[in-house]
Design a protein around this nucleic acid. Sequence first.
DNA 1: CTGTGGGA
DNA 2: TCCCACAGG
Length: 333
Amino acid sequence: MGVAIRDLISDYKTSVDWADLRGTAAVDGNNALYQFLTTIRQPDGTPLMDREGRVTSHLSGIFFRITTFLENNIKPVFIFDGAPPEFKSETLEQRRERKAVAETAYRQAVEVGDTVSAFRHARAATRVDETIIAGTKELLGYMGIPCIDAMSEGEAQAAYMAMNGDVRYSISQDYDSLLFGAPRLVRNLTVSRKRKVRGRVITVNPEEILLSDLLDGKGITREELIEIGILVGTDFNSGVKGVGAKTALKIVKSGKFYETFEENEPEFDPAPVKEFFLNPPVSKGYSLSWSHVDREGVVSYLCGRHDFSEDRVNSVLERIGVKSGQKTLDSWF
DNA sequence: CTGTGGGA
DNA sequence: TCCCACAGG
C-alpha cells in the first residue's frame, strides 16, 4: 500500500488549519473510498447497508466529508484510478489473494461469533469495486463535485493537475503523490477528534507536506526521491530486502541506485518504474466545473434509494445553506 | 468516519 | 459546556 517513506517525511510534515486549505483540491478518490469502507462499520464488521443489502458506508463518508469541505470553501475534484500499468499486476494479484483469505476468515469469525476478529478480517477484505465507484460518482454529481477518470494512477493525475496549477493541492493518505510530483500533499483532512489507534488515544490533525521542503531538506531531486521509493518498494515493485527509507537515502546519495539492484535483484529492471513515476500517463483534456448542490437529487439518492434518514441529510445540508424545500437552480429554468 | 444525545 | 459512547444504513 503506497510507498514506505514515512521516516524520510516525518520532519517535513506540518499541521495545517482548514482556513489555509480554501480553494481547489484533487482528491485521491480510491484512497478516500478505501478509508471509508474500512472504517465505517459496525463493531462486528458489518458495513452500513440499505434495505436491499447494498453497501452504503462510502456514501455516508463521502456525504459528510464533502459537506465539511464545502463548509470550509474547499472545492474538491475527485480522481479515480484508470488502467494500472503492467508492472502493478503482481501487487494486484497479491492483494486479491489476501482479500480472498480475509473474506474466508471473516465468514468463519462470524460463524463462531468472534466479533473482534470478524471486524479485523472484514476490514482486510475491503475492496473498492465498480459498483462502489459508480455510486460515489452519482452522489458527487448531485453534490456538484467534478470527477475525473485518470488514464492510469489517480495520484499521478492529481499531481499533474496540481503542477499545472489547476488545483492547489492533493489529498491522499499515501506518499506516492510526492513521487509523482505533487507539490503539496495534504493528509488527514478530516474533522479533528480523538481516535483510538492501536489501543492509544491520539488526536489526528490535518497535515501537509511540501515537496520542495522535503527535497531541499534532504538535498535530493525528485528523481532521487523516486529512486528512494523504488528501493524501499512501491505498488509497482517490491524493493530491496532490508532497505528502509534511511538506508535508501544513503544509497541514492552515493549514486548506487542501479548498482544496488544489480547486486540484490538482478532480475528486476527499475528503469521502467522510475520512468513511470517521472512521466506517468495522464489525461490532459479534463475540464473542471463545480456546480450547486442539487438538494432533490441528493435526498432522493441517499434517502429514497439508499435509506438514509431524511432528517439527518437535511440538517447536514442546511449547514452549507441548502435549505429543505429550497428550489435548485435548475428548476428556475 | 462523523453527527448526536445523554451523562458528568 | 464538554466529553464520550454509540448509531448511522
